[in-house]
Design a protein around this nucleic acid. Structure first.
Ligand SMILES: [Zn+2]
Ligand SMILES: [Zn+2]
Ligand SMILES: [Zn+2]
Ligand SMILES: [Zn+2]
Lengths: 162, 162
DNA sequence: GCCTCAAACGTTATGTTATTACATTCTTCG
DNA sequence: CGAAGAATGTAATAACATAACGTTTGAGGC
């Protein structure tokens, strides 16, 4: 697996935001979805931070910029983004993060560093996953999977060893 | 995998509660832990229901029975139970469920039926898991994993087909 | 058995996350 | 244009969770 896939590495952040927005724009156009100003701004806020943000964090920034100030403003935008694969909810944190692999259909897995609070999104092969196997043997049909691991990222591990 | 492992099947419920309580009693004694009345009752409430209960559901039943009526009463009991492997938190539901495999050290995986709200706990082999593999290739150290799948259980699938 | 101290418990208060309900505006399309 | 549905805004409330502090209890040392 490409380490970059997993997000604990440095990268060209200025480009990654604009690229993601462009991709989202095109995806929505192609799918007949409305990437409205609030929704687009909510996505760019998540992209800028590059970490998991609570709905109220997003809301605060949206309302500063003239959008509505009530919770549904943030929750609706985030619902749209998560529904269409542009963002994901990290259940363990009750927080949201921009998708690192849009376009591609995927079952994301997240690695959450409890020290620096970085969150990396890894791609998984759904057909080989543990849950799929369990589901197969029991007759359960999976609609959505949550795969999240908490622990220490390589960077923090290194620092604590030093 | 034994289908019973996974909890969508019928079973001898009267025994499963008392057995689990007995096992918990012994486990706590052996480990030098105090399975106090609130904690024991919280566990039996989870066992009786055999599904995921919110902390406030547990609290309501505890307070009816003369225990404290404030949220920390429930949260503290549930924290104890989850910390020592007698119960688990289902992150997707913000709810708690009695462990189906106490004693054994395990990384539980849950199958959540969105129709009947049953929750089954399956055992996993941590070393073979997807997350472990990802972690290994990226240098991430996993402390705790959340594996939850939402979908349709065999019973509900059958009914909807009929 | 008695004392000490940490753990457990109870309560008040508050913080955080999320939804319901309803009025208004914008878009789409015939 | 006009109807229908989607998107937005706001107010109110529900649901989930923790902080802080005083009191009780009981495990473990003497
Ligand atoms: Zn970036
Ligand atoms: Zn880290
Ligand atoms: Zn378990
Ligand atoms: Zn079901």
């Amino acid at each position: 697996m490409d380490p970059n896939t997993v997000g604990f590495t440095k990268h060209d952040h200025s480009h990654c935001i604009s690229d993601a927005i462009t991709a989202a724009d095109r995806m929505c156009r192609d799918a007949g979805l409305q990437l409205t100003p609030v929704r687009k701004r909510a996505l760019s806020i998540l992209l800028e931070e590059h970490r998991a943000l609570g709905a109220y964090d997003v809301l605060a920034r949206l309302s500063e910029e003239g959008f509505g100030a009530q919770p549904p403003v943030a929750y609706r935008a985030l619902d749209f983004l998560t529904k269409h694969g542009l963002a994901h909810k990290i259940e363990r944190l009750n927080a949201f993060i921009a998708c690192a692999h849009p376009n591609e259909l995927h079952t994301p897995a997240f690695l959450i560093c409890t020290t620096c609070h970085a969150v990396a999104e890894a791609e998984t092969d759904p057909s080989h996953s543990l849950l799929s196997q369990i589901a197969e043997t029991t007759g359960f049909t999976i609609a959505r999977a949550v795969l999240e691991a908490e622990g220490t990222c390589p960077n923090c591990r290194e620092k604590s060893a030093a």
